[in-house]
Nucleic acid binder design. Structure first.
Lengths: 251, 251
DNA sequence: TCGAATTATGAACCTGATTCAAAAAATGAG
DNA sequence: CTCATTTTTTGAATCAGGTTCATAATTCGA
């Protein structure tokens, strides 16, 4: 059925168009301002057509996050393949999250929103599954790095599985970003955002895991150089993957 | 003006009534189902009266979170005052978060929702400030514990301020809970929720900070006993503070 | 007790998501 | 190529629920 294949391709292309435009509008005006009818019009389709792709507005938002998740996975895969110490790969993943937030602040906010009960529950089950399916290879990837470090004798297994161990740095990374993202919180604390702080904390954790080589976090020079280097490497991967991968408003 | 005082008191009481009922309805039916008109009716007031207290639905949600924040602060204060090692106090705070989520799952979900751009931006500035004001003493409290540990020689300062250091365990705690809260994520990872895991990770971090006394996380017996003990202590404080402090649906 | 000032009321309004009957387009058999 | 049938698109109508505001009720102080 070559006809159906063509139709399917067109349909997929239209879905990407909707998603692209939605991402653009969100980046420009914020999630709150995204409206279904204007979005459809901006894509030169009727409102009803939009609803042939997404069962609800929330479903559309999930679709955006799912797509971002794919990009994230590809980036993470390339990071995992870098020729750097295993320990640094974990840092590099953290750097990647950092950069992603810098380049796509609206994505980060969207993700926070989407995992909220209210939004999550209003999306279609299949779309939710899509996002969860993304997370499987992601966690496999991270725990793969941990596994490799254990096998290389750089990291004791602490009698935990690699997967369980891998949750620690991941939680720290998420938590750290979440706190920072929470509007006005750091300001309320009287805390200035020192971009190295996050990495100091990560090193403290990795040290605690006895992940070799340990790093003395008071050695700011070494730390700065390390993060600098990782940033450059990750940034390059980032731009190779998707040169236009940038929020219009935040360039 | 004794008349105005009385009025003010009545007004405050009514606000608490609205908040109580809202919390009840949310615990019963979820955030999504909370509607302004039914809430007002359930309190035997007109819709408009509700709007004399809260500038919007989002404002009401923030008010709920602010009130929870006060309770949390009081609990944390009592934990900080416990006669236990400083290091254990950090664990106890983590335990407290755990318990709070257990007893009030809807609060945790609400908090996640409220810090979302969409909700946050739709609340009144004064309500937002209220929440931020809560966070100041909270961070002072946590960094106070860190400070005390440093002063007691139990923790090197790593050339950071106590406040900066205190962010690490806090971020780990938040991140860990966030991950776990994210619907279906752990299941998608093929990870079983081991309630001790979170504390193992925290100990890894504290070990990395060289916070004495170090704990060997493979020593499950000691860890279990420690957390058990902290749970009991915290649970007691918890119930003393607010005996009825329980989500209707989740008892 | 009465007029002014304050507060409460809830039906009407408004925004924006969602639906669906009608129109248009695509398909494919003859 | 034509026409009946199926599929797809359309966008105005519907619907939900948050918010407002003219009116009614209440409180206040003289």
């Amino acid at each position: 059925m070559t006809v159906n294949e063509r139709k399917e391709r067109q349909r997929a292309a239209r879905e990407q168009l909707f998603l692209d435009k939605a991402a653009e509008l969100i980046a420009r005006d914020g999630i709150l301002q995204l409206q279904m009818a204007p979005l459809a019009k901006a894509c030169e389709y009727a409102t009803g057509t939009l609803y042939q792709h997404f069962s609800s507005k929330e479903d559309l938002l999930l679709a955006l996050v799912a797509r971002n998740g794919c990009n994230q996975l590809r980036l993470f895969e390339q990071i995992a393949a870098l020729a750097i110490p295993h320990r640094n790969k974990i840092l590099a993943l953290c750097v990647a999250e950092d950069l992603a937030r810098q380049y796509h602040p609206s994505h980060a906010r969207l993700e926070q929103y989407v995992f909220t009960e209210v939004v999550w529950e209003n999306a279609s089950a299949s779309r939710r599954q899509l996002i969860l399916d993304n997370s499987k290879p992601l966690s496999a990837l991270v725990s793969g790095i941990v596994r490799a470090a254990i096998d290389a004798g750089e990291l004791p297994d602490h009698q935990c599985s690699a997967l369980e161990l891998s949750i620690a740095p991941w939680a720290l990374c998420c938590g750290s970003h979440n706190l920072e993202q929470t509007a006005g919180l750091f300001e309320a604390f009287g805390l200035n955002k020192d971009s190295l702080q996050r990495y100091r904390h990560m090193h403290l954790l990795l040290n605690g895991m006895q992940w070799q080589p340990l790093l003395d976090i008071t050695d700011t020079a070494t730390l700065t150089a390390q993060i600098q280097d990782l940033k450059q490497r990750v940034e390059q991967l980032f731009h190779n993957l998707c040169p236009l991968n940038v929020d219009p408003l935040n360039v």
